Each structure stands twice: as structure tokens, then as C-alpha cells.
Simulated assay, not measured.
Amino acid sequence: MRLGVIGLGLIAQAVHLQNLQTLREKYQVTHVCDLSATLAAQVAAEYGGPVRHSTDAAEVLADPEVDAVLILTPGTHAYLARRALEAGKHVLAEKPFAHTTAECLELDALAAAKGLVLQVAYMKMYDPIMARARAELASLGALRARAGDRAAPRRRPAVRPPAPPALRRRRPHRRRHLLRAGEGGPRPSATSASRTCRSTPTCCRARSCTSCRCCARLFGEQPLTIAHAQAAGLKPGVKLEEPPQLQALGTLGDAQLSLSWNWLPDFPDYGEEIAVFGSAGRLYLSMPGPYLRDARAELVVESMQGGERATTRLVSDHRTGFVHELLAFHASVTEGAPVLSTATGAAYDTAALQQIARSLA
């Protein structure tokens, strides 16, 4: 598959470009793009082979030597995803995908109408340990509670030359318009058509969308209701200097749900854990940091078997979720395999985040 890469910052340099080299029997990078012409030229030269480079995404989308695009730009990605689909390109877009549920649903419909693949890069959904964890839920009996906890260290951006001011002004500034465009909708569901919450904090979106997808991968997109949310460090009228500590309580299906996101600026280790408690056992899922190529997910299941307590510990295979999501994208494009992380799934997450924002407000 001939691939164009749009956005060459931290996630591209630390993860995706290296994985594409590993999967070079399936992918040929033919065009790279960044607002920094220096960085785009450097990446093209270092990648090897005849790789074109540009500073305008339109050149990638018009390139006949590009079959699909990997969108790695900052912020949300609905605008570029729409342009790519309209140009006839398959799309793998990083998260958070869109500001509104309407955009998510519209773009899924657009991809289907054009016969193209649209996949959102929720890499943890593709870690094989997620499917095993879902299979183990049956041994836990009736589920009582689910808890998610995430501790994020301060990320240090990759060194990159700045873009000229004229190029920086090209990026469409649509966020303020979108956040004023609509209002919060009903509880999340796979077909939710709610619009947007006026006050969804970007920091909350970026840190919680992956956790929402992990829950959806494990339990399915069950009705999710947020009854209470609070954020340490969030004060009316005071500008946020860094992400707050965020807690949310609610229900997912028939079980209680507790979510926690913690910003740890002076602690270097990232951690994300999901705990599930049932009438007959417990499950603990620990996900690795996103930029650690050698870190693996770990699953611990405690249950009763024949009157005895049994503990099973499993560790993921040698390939990270980032690699598995690229393999899945390739299979969807070339073989028609179903897309696991759809834009409609991103709409479910957006609706959940709207509930959190409304509770905070």
C-alpha cells in the first residue's frame, strides 16, 4: 500500500515511521508532509527510497502515488479526514478524531458511500490482550464495578524546526466555531447523533478518549451515564496552565463505573490500568506507555475454579498495539476486513466526554 504521512511530529517520529519501516513488506511511504519544510525534507531523506515531501496536505491528497493517508497532525482530524476521503484516499487518523459526534457519523457515512476505509488510531484496541481480557470476563460472574485509572507524565516534544509564519496561518481555526455550534445530546450509544458540548476541554479529550475506547473494546458500547465529575485545579475564569486531575463516576450498562485521569508533570512513568470486579473474580489490565516500543500490556485474572482460587497472568506479544493497528488497516484496505475502531465509535467517546464536561460545568 502506498502511504502518505501528514504531520511529522512526536507521534510520527517516535512510533509510526519506525513501525512503517518494520512493515515495509506491506507499506511503501511515498509522500511525507509537515508545515516545517526542513523537517519534511529531513524525514524524506532519512526514510530512504523515492519519498516526496511537501508542506501542504493538499499536495499529498492530490498525489496519484498515494493510496491512503496517515493523519498525525495536532488536535482533531475530521477536517483533513474529510478532504482525504473526498480525494479518494483511505484514512487512518490519530485521536482525538473530531470535536462533534455529528462529524464522526457524517465521515463514517462518507467513507461507506465512497467505498473507502476510515479507521481511528485507537491503538490499544488492537493489542491482542484486549480480546483475551474480553473473553475472560465470563469467568468473573455478574459484573459489579469497573474502574479506570490513568497517570500521564509530562511529554517532551520531539525536536523540530518551526514552520514559517505564513504556513502556520494555513491551518483552519475551526474549534471555537464548532464548540459554539451545538449543544450536548443524550447518553452515548453507537447511533448517538448528539452535537457538541460548548465547553469540552481539549486536555480531557486527549487523555480520556483512549480509556473510553478500551472500555468499549472490553464491554461493548453499552449505555454510559456520568452522574458526577470533578477536576482538581479547574477554576471558573482562570486559564488552565496544565491538564487537571479528573475524576468521574457513573454507570456502564448495569455496572458501576469509576474513571480517573491524573497529570503527573514531575514523574516520568506513564500508566493506564483497568480493573473489573465481578461476583466470582477480578480482572486487572495494565496498558504500556504509548512511546515505549519494548513495553507490553499485562493481564491478571483472579477467579474461582472448582472451589479453589486461581490466578492467571498473561503478557502481550512482541508487537505493540501500534503495529497491530497498522496491520489491521492494511487488511481492511486490501482484504475488506471489518474496521474495529470506527468514527462511529469515536462518536460514542465524544458523547461520553460531553457528559463529563456538562457535569463539570
Rank of each mutant, 00 (worst) to 15 (best):
R205L: 07
S139L: 14
A131C: 05
R146I: 15
R313K: 12
K26C: 11
G4E: 01
T200V: 14
G237Y: 00
L80W: 06
V117H: 04
R313W: 08
V15I: 10
I11D: 04
V117C: 01
S279W: 00
S189P: 00
A343Y: 05
A190N: 08
R24G: 11
Y27P: 02
R156K: 13
H31W: 08
R319Q: 14
D266C: 12
A62Q: 14
F219Q: 00
A166W: 09
S36A: 01
V300C: 11
E46H: 14
H173E: 14
M130D: 06
E65G: 15
R198H: 13
V315C: 11
H177T: 13
P162W: 08
T202L: 14
I274D: 01
A275N: 12
E25R: 13
C197I: 06
R170N: 09
S332W: 08
A331Y: 08
C203Y: 03
C214Q: 14
Y79Q: 10
I274V: 15
V120D: 01
V51D: 03
F219A: 03
R144K: 13
G250S: 07
S258K: 09
E183P: 07
A347V: 00
A145E: 13
L246K: 02
R213D: 15
A352T: 09
L292H: 13
R207D: 08
Q247T: 14
E106G: 04
R169Q: 15
H228V: 10
A347I: 05
R207S: 09
W263P: 00
H318P: 09
R160V: 11
L118P: 02
F97P: 05
L35K: 10
R187A: 15
N262G: 08
L218D: 00
Q13W: 06
Q42I: 05
A216D: 01
P188T: 02
L110Y: 03
